[in-house]
Simulated assay, not measured.
Amino acid sequence: MANNFVDHKDRWLLIANGEFEYPILFIKSWLPFNAWYCNNYPHHKNKDRPILEDMKLDNNLFITRIIALLQNDDEDAIIFQTNLVKLHNNLESFKVPNATENISFKSLNYRINPKTSFLKTYRNHNYKVEIVTPISPNFYKIRIDILNASNRNIFLYNHTKYDKLHLIADSSFISLSQANKDIILGGFDAINPKLKESLIVTKKSESLPTITQILFKNDSQLLAQAIIEILYNIRCILFHGEIQPSKDNLKIYEPAFYMLKQLIKSLD
């Protein structure tokens, strides 16, 4: 995202001068959290993103506390759950950092897509789209095959990066029928390593039983990972000046601060 700090400098100066309380409190709360995770994951050399990816999957104090607060019904859990609902509602109401690239529990890339292959049979043809081997966090060996009824390969695509523009510009892909293209592109989207997922469900039977106001997915582990990702995302748009500093937009930092404050207490 582009850095809008210069465009919003007058409003950010108001924040620096203490006109907005909760963004400042959120920043102050993030600092000890930052110190804790850098100290606990020294092999990542203070790099936030790889640390947080490990933290999401590790049995550490921070994520286990989130899970406990999501699952329990004591006073601390109710406070945390209330602020989580408020954070979700504020994110949906104010669309930060902007309407087209907003942070939301409804569409969030918070984990590597567990789906690495797509198979389909259509009109005696077999289609396979797969990530063969992850090469690095941002580079993947992609293979796509179309086999006819005789099991002969009529289309083969290999690339060392997940890149849709590269696929659709491939001359062999261009020569395919529209039906074949649509199936391949559907499979390609399905295995997207950075697929955005929703943590909001439509059926109460599939929702987290401890929270009734919003139907969060009944998976505390995944929801905890998503909460870490959301907190980090709103930290980044604040630290980098990417959020337009309006009174409404900055309301997201009130529940975020209280959630982070509760979680930090578990790190003592």
Rank of each mutant, 00 (worst) to 15 (best):
E101R: 10
N148H: 13
E130T: 06
N148Y: 07
E130N: 12
S150H: 03
I131S: 01
I135K: 12
L108E: 01
Y110S: 11
K120W: 11
S104I: 07
K95I: 03
I63M: 05
F155C: 05
V96M: 06
P50V: 08
R111K: 12
I112R: 13
T64R: 15
L52V: 07
A77N: 01
K128M: 09
N102H: 15
E130M: 15
N83A: 03
N46R: 12
A77K: 06
N72G: 13
Q81Y: 11
P137S: 12
F80A: 01
K56N: 05
D145N: 14
F118H: 08
P42M: 05
L69H: 02
R123T: 14
I103D: 03
N153D: 06
Y127N: 10
N46T: 11
T116H: 14
P134M: 03
E130A: 12
E101Q: 14
I144Y: 00
L119P: 00
F155K: 08
N113F: 08
L147R: 10
Y41K: 10
R152P: 01
T121K: 14
D58H: 12
N72A: 14
I154C: 02
N46M: 15
F105G: 02
F118T: 03
T82H: 13
T82A: 10
Q71R: 06
L91E: 04
N90M: 07
Y140C: 00
Y127I: 05
L84P: 02
H125S: 08
N46I: 09
I67G: 10
I144A: 00
A99E: 13
R123G: 02
R143F: 02
K106F: 05
N83V: 04
A35M: 07
P32D: 06
T133D: 11
E53P: 00
N126P: 00
F33Q: 06
K128Y: 04
K115T: 09
N72H: 09
K115I: 13
Y127A: 10
N124H: 12
S136E: 13
Q71Y: 01
N151C: 01
S136H: 10
T64W: 06
F155N: 07
I131G: 03
N109G: 09
L147S: 05
S150P: 02
N102M: 07
L70I: 08
N90V: 02
N102L: 05
L91T: 04
N138K: 07
Y37R: 14
D145W: 15
K45A: 13
E92L: 07
L52A: 13
N72K: 12
I67N: 04
F139A: 07
M55C: 08
H88T: 05
D76H: 09
K86Q: 12
I79V: 10
